[in-house]
Amino acid sequence: MNEMMIETRNLTKKYKGTRAVDALNLAIPRGEIYGFLGPNGAGKTTTIRMLLGLIRPSSGVVQIFGQDLKRDRIKILRRVGSLVEYPSYYGHLNAVENLETIRRILNVPKTRIDEVLHTVGLTKDAKRHVKGYSLGMKQRLGIAAALLGSPELLILDEPTNGLDPSGILEIRELIKKMPQEQGITVLVSSHLLSEIEQMASSVGIVNQGKMIFQDSISNLQRKAGSEIHIALSDAEAAMITVREQGCFARLDQGKLIFKGIDDGQIARLVSALVDARHSIYRVEERRKSLEDLFLTMTSGASGSASEIAAIGSGAPRGAGLRKEVAQ
């Protein structure tokens, strides 16, 4: 089995009775770009703070590089680069001085400063006071600071926050290169599925502090599933025919919508509908978009477990959860 870079067991953080993070089991193997996905307030930043030892878990265990964070925090953090939420910086210092404050502690050669500034494209502005930087430039400086110590694990909380489209693309390309070129494992959080989809190799989805899905991106895409839409002259009357055929349909704006039926069933349905003198205008397959899936998974205040079971019909609660247990 693959070596785990980050592993948490029942990680929980309570704030005045409410659970910001609730029994979270993260499992991130080496070399992955792990997309940590969830809507606002899902508990992503809270989890990341716990991974970095910034806040204490109410209960549960964090292991990074197979070592216990509580015991070996300093040894672990030496090999981790991080960027938490909006960027931290010293506005009265320039970019080089900002990085120098970190370099002295990490004890890396001065040349690393020029290297990371080049990597994030700040070389030209290196001598300007950071308070005059745009938000995107500050964000890049934060990423440069995370890279300074040549980390093996990079933890980035919403790194493309505040960047323009070309900046987002650049950072995304930068992140995608990390595992291949430098063997770095990346945990990157976002509330945008599209962003995670474009760079991550595996994904964990959290909602209200709970992990509701954790698997590879391709398995998530498979899960999205598809529906058959049939548009026809009199949908309501057609429902009777459908039932006679032993199928179940949902009625939506004059269309019949079928979930999980095979080719044979469709063929039989269509001929039965034609026999019953319905005019069939269109038969189409609609792939449920990942965005819809994400929204269904993360919407609603009540238990998301039942919803995910509904989505993954056939494979209740998904292979992802079973995998989690295995790891």
């Binding site: 703070r49 300093i74 981790v80 931290s88 910086y89 010293y90 506005g91 970190i102 502690i105």
Partner: peptide
């Protein structure tokens, strides 16, 4: 204030320091 102003504590204390 140096650390408080731009919330630099989270960066400083995520470094390998006691």
């Amino acid at each position: 204030n140096i650390e408080n102003r731009q919330n630099a504590w989270k960066q400083t204390l995520a470094l390998p320091v006691r």
